[in-house]
Amino acid sequence: MIPATLNVYVGLSALLFAVGLLGVLLRRNTLVIYMCLELMLVASTLAFVAFSRFNGSMDGNVFVFFILTVAAAEVAAGLAIIVALFRKRLTVQVDQLDGLKH
């Protein structure tokens, strides 16, 4: 059994963030990269809520509101950009989107 301590929450948050970072670095599909970005945002919210709970403070919980709102706006704008990109280049693989390189 895993004890429900602050260490476990923060460790899981770090693990989720690390998985998201690895996904951003290793995957080549823009949509999956975007999902991994969302995973990193959720990892940060988990750390916020855990610290807030164990310190008897409200600020972390309120900050999660702002993170959720910014994430929602970011997803809407980012996916619109991906769709516009797909219309123009007919691909979402990042290694084929190398127009600036040549």
């Binding site: 599909n29 949509l31 994430a71 991906i82 979402v92």
Partner: peptide, 21 residues
């Protein structure tokens, strides 16, 4: 917000564009 809206939006976009490419 996340499970209801964001992931649904992702699934819509995945179906909208051909991800295999």
């Amino acid at each position: 917000v996340y499970a209801g809206a964001v992931v649904t939006l992702f699934l819509f976009i995945v179906m909208l564009i051909d991800v295999r490419g």
